[in-house]
Design a protein around this nucleic acid. Sequence first.
DNA 1: CAAATAACCAAGCAAGCGCTAGGTAATAAA
DNA 2: TTTATTACCTAGCGCTTGCTTGGTTATTTG
Lengths: 193, 193
Amino acid sequence: MTIPKQSARRKELTTVAAKLFKKHSFDRTTVRMLASEAGIKSGSLFYHYRNKEEILFAVIKQGLLSSLETIKKETSKAVTVEEKLQALILGQLKALHGKNKDAHIVSISEWRSLNKQSRQSLIDIRDEYEAYWQGIIDLAIAGGVLKGDAKLQKLFILGALNWTTQWYKKDHSKSIDEIAKECFESVTTGRLN
Amino acid sequence: MTIPKQSARRKELTTVAAKLFKKHSFDRTTVRMLASEAGIKSGSLFYHYRNKEEILFAVIKQGLLSSLETIKKETSKAVTVEEKLQALILGQLKALHGKNKDAHIVSISEWRSLNKQSRQSLIDIRDEYEAYWQGIIDLAIAGGVLKGDAKLQKLFILGALNWTTQWYKKDHSKSIDEIAKECFESVTTGRLN
DNA sequence: CAAATAACCAAGCAAGCGCTAGGTAATAAA
DNA sequence: TTTATTACCTAGCGCTTGCTTGGTTATTTG
């Protein structure tokens, strides 16, 4: 029996898995928990996936693709370098806290739970994601919006944003837009006023 | 039989545990792996700890205390606000990548693997750590070295620094001191030049 | 209609897990 | 010299885990 990789049902199950993996971590989510949440029996999962790790693989792939789409869409409207950087920051925050957050958060926190082959086969998407970020950061530095080493700047800003997953709750006093604005102003302070 | 919490042997075992927990994560480190690394049999671990989670608790407590000590020591020499902030950034990076890094990294990445009671009993140390950071950030804002919301600034900077655990390897082209310097200049750019 | 396919279930296996019980040897205390 | 104490080992128990096998039902296709 062959397992179809793009069925609609599989997508549903992957979304359920993203939710539980984010809530409990991959290791602490059992196949029985996944099945129960999906309303089926644990054995039935292996009709859709070869093994548990393939479920994680599907979640992370979905997370990478959807967040890449999010930041591209968000930055597409921007014209100036300032606008692009601001949109990129906002896009990243939306990917982390918006509709499809579960899969994206899993993709950055459970990367090392994948085996080597799985990681290798996702590296193209990851590289594209990083390259997209780097492109805008490079522009910002060339335009004088940012200063310093381009790669470090990217890592600092991405780090500050990704770290929001550790403290930002949806009942926070500030909205995502406000946090994006403050982050933008923080990294570019001085040149603008 | 009662378990002494402060024996020298226990400290050794906790250091071994920190190493493996950082390398493989808490969930993927078995008591047999811990015992093997320590040169004893798995059952012997439970002479020193009540259960596996208590090992994690010991690691995290040690991580919090030693990194708090590190940043206090690092900042103690500083006089001006600029120096204090710079020292704090460097101290945090040393805690993350220096001698006692294992326990500290575990303390920020495995916090949620603790049960509620364990977390609660460590919260005082955690609060002191955050308060120490907040104190210097507040000073920096009052002194005009930083701008914006004090709490957000703290979270952004801490996030950027803690995120270095995801990408910094010891064969990196830049040293810890260089990265600290660049981070400091990045968050304070504009006011100084 | 018959055949194929998709999606599931029931039952359970083998391996690995945290942890325990009872015992041993070496050192320290009385 | 007896008694405690410290630090370990041996052996294995009970449970959970990911996963398999063989079968069932409903829907679609020729």
